[in-house]
């Protein structure tokens, strides 16, 4: 899922300092699961903003709503009635949700309350880590199911580099060396010979370097 984190309340407040009434929109998708922008977090954000503004003698009126998904036009459409009389929309979704709201309500000031961090999963409750580099051309079958694109701090494909020591990356003793993990796994699987194969450079045009990407399934499109 997409992992996001809330921006400091002060930063969000600064984005809407001229507004009297705002709509805060949570998202029941990924950001609910990673506890950044679900129904509860949206209400806590609204309450925090109201307290701040009231202290400044400039009360803020808030309306909150949590969309099933902000990355789907049909759920965004449902906000239609709520946006009429607000001065701004605060989105507690990932960057996708913010853009969907901005596109749909193009006469409204739409601001992000979250920083979209990465694609990952949880380790224990309250802890998430990055796992996928979104390169658009998966090579996990060649690297023992461990992604060097994002888990190696240099995205090395023929690793490990000379900075790997005691299983850790040169950037921090808290970061596992992805290539040590790959080596260990391939070793356990008896496939170390695979690591001797030269891995050619990636085709980055399949990643962000090819411009905004699209995916199409014509068979499911409705005319």
């Amino acid at each position: 899922m997409i992992i996001a984190q809330q921006k400091p309340v002060k930063d969000v407040a600064a984005m809407i300092s001229n507004c009297k009434k705002v709509l805060l929109v949570g998202c029941a998708g990924c950001v609910t699961v990673c506890l950044a922008g679900g129904e509860k977090e949206t209400e806590v954000m609204a309450s925090s903003l109201r307290i701040m503004r009231k202290m400044e003698d400039n009360p803020l009126e808030t309306v909150t709503y949590t969309a099933t998904r902000q990355c789907d036009p049909e759920y965004v459409d449902m906000l239609g009635n709520m946006v009429q009389d607000v001065d701004a929309i605060v989105s507690l979704a990932c960057g996708v949700g913010v853009q969907y709201l901005a596109e749909r309500f193009n006469d409204k000031w739409v601001v992000p309350a979250l920083d979209t961090k990465f694609i990952g999963g949880s380790t224990v409750h309250g802890n998430w880590e990055e796992k996928c580099g979104l390169c658009g051309d998966c090579i996990l079958h060649r690297t023992g199911g461990i992604c060097p694109i994002i888990r190696c701090s240099k995205s090395i494909l023929n690793g490990p580099c000379g900075g790997s020591q005691y299983g850790k990356c040169e950037i921090s003793k808290d970061v596992d060396c992805a290539w040590q993990l790959i080596y260990d796994r391939m070793s356990a699987l008896g496939k170390l010979d695979k690591l001797m194969e030269f891995q050619p450079p990636k085709d980055w045009s399949k990643s962000r370097d090819g411009g905004p990407r699209k995916a199409v399934r014509e068979d499911v499109m409705i005319d």
């Binding site: 023929n158 490990p160 580099c161 020591q165 005691y166 080596y183 260990d184 170390l192 001797m196 030269f198």
Partner: peptide
């Protein structure tokens, strides 16, 4: 030669 995994350092040199 001082990085890890040590056993793989020579293999990577050969690569």
């Amino acid at each position: 030669p001082f990085a890890d995994p040590f056993e793989f350092r020579v293999a990577r040199l050969e690569k």
